[in-house]
Amino acid sequence: MLEKYLSINEDVKKALENNMPVVALESTIISHGMPYPQNVETALLVEDEIRKNGAIPATIAIINGKLKVGLTKDEIEYLGKEGLNVIKTSRRDLPVIVAKKLNGATTVATTMIIAAMAGIKVFATGGIGGVHRGAQETFDISADLQELARTNVAVVCAGAKSILDLGLTLEYLETNGVPVLGYQTKELPAFYTRKSGFNVDHRMDTPKEIAETLDAKWNLNMNGGVVITNPIPEKYAMDYDTITNAIEEALKEAEEKGIRGKESTPFLLSKVKDITKGASLESNIKLVLNNAKLGAQIAVELSK
């Protein structure tokens, strides 16, 4: 039945059949994360980074209602040009986008779902969603967290986006039994910065150690994902106070304009980019490349 909906690129299919390392990538970053043509350039750079580190990239999106695992260069270009016309697709949207044969850009949650359908275990992204500030009143909690509790995919990220309530995000993951690992760090990175003031569950020093942990978790039939946090490289990290002030300013404006739900993250990230005069976008690109590299290294170890 799945074949009706799922379309796996030939290179990706061959790699999966031969137990070769594959890394899933999301498409929201292409259509909603950056302007054209930077979005397309970045997507192709990220794929190259994965290949350079010995794995096969599988960018995931929905095109004309088909769940695509491994996009062609033309499909990436198409998504980049279409930009915001492509529907940002989370778990709840997925059946509608498929049934209506629309185009969808996959969030962390949806990329995990489709990666799991295809049999891909490792996924590299920028940052995961989480518990929004003020969630005790709004109940605004990203579907990414629930997906991590139920879907067997490891997500390599630069922590949760610093526009979120990081403490509550960690609490939510703990309640749902999702391990949060720090690659060569004990402190939870906060996307643009290496600091957050919060600790991860366990520090891991090598991709091999992480792969062995994933293997043990799933061999024990413990369902659900793992968050692997990978701090942005020191030289591209933004100043903690600068980014904190920019976020506070952006949050205040979002509150005044009544921006909520799925609109809030793109609005806040765009505001932060304006306030930091584009420096946050540059950091964003560097951290995604850094996560792609680690994702590939983990996938290589896992395939052994």
Rank of each mutant, 00 (worst) to 15 (best):
I243H: 12
R91H: 13
V96F: 14
V96L: 14
E3L: 09
A279M: 13
G65V: 06
G159W: 08
D11V: 10
Y236K: 10
A105N: 11
T213G: 08
V40H: 11
L6I: 14
N18Y: 09
Q146I: 02
T59W: 09
I210T: 11
V122G: 08
T110S: 15
R51L: 07
A61K: 14
T229W: 00
H202C: 07
N64K: 15
V46K: 04
A143P: 12
R92M: 06
P179F: 01
D11H: 15
T242Y: 07
L220Q: 09
T28E: 05
N221Q: 14
P266W: 05
L268H: 01
L268I: 10
L148T: 02
S162W: 02
I163L: 13
Q136H: 14
P207D: 07
G130P: 00
T59I: 05
L67K: 15
V86H: 05
G126I: 08
Q184H: 07
I259S: 12
A124R: 01
N152R: 05
Q184S: 12
K195N: 10
T151P: 06
L67Q: 14
M117Y: 13
E82Y: 12
D239A: 05
G83H: 10
P37H: 07
N103A: 03
E47N: 12
G197E: 09
A154R: 07
I50R: 08
